[in-house]
Design a protein around this nucleic acid. Structure first.
Ligand SMILES: [Mn+2]
Ligand SMILES: [Mn+2]
Ligand SMILES: [Zn+2]
Ligand SMILES: [Zn+2]
Lengths: 147, 147
DNA sequence: TAGACTTTAAGAATGATTATCTTTTAATAA
DNA sequence: TTATTAAAAGATAATCATTCTTAAAGTCTA
């Protein structure tokens, strides 16, 4: 997809501007993160990268993720049980819909989001600068399965 | 507060109905969770309980929390770094507004919530059964402070 | 191409949570 | 009240995602 390419180039540019080196491992990690199909975990990224670079270490993936977080180029989705997952395609806060059965994650485009944010500000007086909006349930496919 | 008492009694009733024993340690844990001031972590609960019952183990707090989660009597707020926090006062999914400066947590009452949930279902086909809606920002007091 | 500096790789350490196992205890019936 | 017994507590080991440490390898620049 064209958009993935644009994201990859933008990430590369950000790294270069900060004087960070573009190593083969980093490039491979960025290629997984730019589309962020499935919002991969560190381990899932590692499993892809290690095919091309068999000596890759998990620590390298963790460090690259940490760097990208600092640069605002990836969104971390925190989960206390199981591992975190990463969205490099839309590295800014946005709602997610998570299937509790197959772990699929979808980005909804919610018209009601700005209204809700306004309601929060109005009701609490908070100046809202960030959010985490996760909905959990069963995706259409998993609804069909027999429990 | 009267409501805290009602919550405590409700929790006790739920445990008894399930044939669970009311031990002194459990009662002490419930007393911390019923008001859930500050949505305490396991360690914070432990630190309170251990004053009255010096032999208390962290494992006991964890086990009681697990039991209460199964019974739907406590809401777990997951954080991938640092520890989870627990709300026994409103043990069902509800939005939170968190001050990033003073860590204060407020429960807003959002009229737009049901509309948003409906929009999620309609747009993604998911059957939504749960959510985690956190807004982060500055509370009115912290907005006044000069950083 | 050499040298300075960064990054990688491997594995140890960390820390919240969970599991295991033994001792203690709450609830109940004699 | 006491005996009985399954449940719970307590102590500690195991787990597992993540972070840290250090030596080796690689990148970039002059
Ligand atoms: Mn996303
Ligand atoms: Mn709450
Ligand atoms: Zn699914
Ligand atoms: Zn504040």
């Amino acid at each position: 997809m064209r958009n993935d390419e644009a994201r990859l180039n933008h990430m590369l540019l950000t790294l270069k501007e900060r004087g960070q080196r573009i190593t083969p491992q980093r490039l491979a990690i960025l290629r997984v993160l730019a589309p962020s199909e499935g919002r991969p975990s560190v381990e899932e990224i590692y499993n892809v990268v290690v095919k091309d670079f068999p000596t890759t270490s998990l620590a390298t993936v963790y460090k690259t993720i940490t760097l990208l977080k600092e640069l605002g180029e990836v969104l971390e989705l925190e989960f206390s049980q199981g591992s975190n997952r990463y969205d490099g395609s839309k590295p800014f806060p946005h709602p997610h819909v998570v299937c509790t059965r197959c772990k699929r994650i979808v980005d909804p485009d919610l018209e009601s989001l700005s209204a809700m944010t306004a309601e929060v500000s109005e009701q609490t007086g908070f100046k809202v600068v960030n959010h985490r909006l996760d909905f959990y349930g069963l995706c259409p496919e998993c609804q069909k399965e027999k429990v």
